[in-house]
């Protein structure tokens, strides 16, 4: 039996978070949750191409599982909260680390995406708030149709709401802009999360970077196709 003292788990976890690597672990972990959501949400959204029936049924299906829906919402909110809080602490420490800046500073290999994570993040978060007010709660208006009681439970008008919303060029433009920033965020974040938790390999890390780039652009293409499709098919308002 070893006599080595083992720190209690809670104390250890807290100690971990004091150092930037612990905060990065939270950034990476919550990043995985958010990426999974981004994939799932895209798969849901792409049903717009299957027509109003399919999309509205899918919306009704999600709302028929309040336990799952609310679990997902709470997990997402917690992940977003932890992601933002950790990034804020890291940003604060980074600002303190260089109180006097350079008169002249040049970046050599750092990609635009990697240097603007702290900008793309909050703008995406602001857009998500608008997006929820627009298509979930309907507070923005823009021809939003709230769910109505139907013969087989509530009827949802997800398809109509998306079409009505994206026919406004300003709404589509804001959406496309936010997705472009999301692409940049993922472009760096999706491989960076591996490095942060110590996963690096001379052969697989370059592959991982390429995969992150391809994946982030594929995600962007999927999302951006929707407002473009709506504006072409139904015309702009």
């Amino acid at each position: 039996m070893s006599t080595a003292a083992v720190e209690p788990r809670l104390k250890r976890t807290w100690g971990l978070y004091e150092v930037y690597i612990g905060k990065k672990l939270v950034m990476a972990g919550t990043g995985v949750v958010l990426v999974l959501y981004i994939i799932g949400h895209l798969l849901g959204n792409l049903q717009i191409y299957a027509g109003p029936e399919q999309m509205n049924q899918y919306a009704a299906f999600l709302h028929s599982q309040p336990g799952l829906l609310w679990t997902a919402r709470i997990v997402l909110l917690a992940a977003v909260g932890a992601h933002i809080w950790s990034s804020f602490l890291l940003w604060r420490d980074k600002r303190r680390a260089r109180p006097i800046g350079y008169v002249k500073k040049d970046d050599i290999p750092a990609s635009y995406a990697s240097r603007t994570m702290m900008w793309s993040g909050p703008i995406i978060a602001a857009f998500v708030v608008f997006h929820v007010l627009h298509l979930t709660t309907g507070d923005v208006g823009l021809g939003f149709q709230p769910p109505t009681a139907g013969p087989t439970g509530e009827a949802f008008y997800a398809y109509e709401n998306v079409v009505n919303g994206f026919r406004y060029p300003a709404v589509s433009a804001a959406y496309i802009f936010a997705i472009a920033l999301l692409t940049m965020h993922l472009y760096h974040g999706m491989w960076s999360m591996f490095q942060s938790v110590g996963i690096s390999h001379p052969r697989y890390t370059p592959l991982l970077k390429s995969l992150a780039h391809v994946f982030s652009i594929a995600i962007a293409a999927g999302y951006i196709s929707i407002p473009v499709y709506v504006m072409i098919r139904f015309g702009v308002k």
Binding site: Y20, D93, D107, I108, S111, S114
Partner: peptide, 15 residues
């Protein structure tokens, strides 16, 4: 960390 260095964002400027 105590010395007040910042965190790593994996951007590769150091390298």
């Amino acid at each position: 960390t105590k010395e007040g260095f910042g965190h790593c964002t994996n951007i590769g400027e150091c390298e």
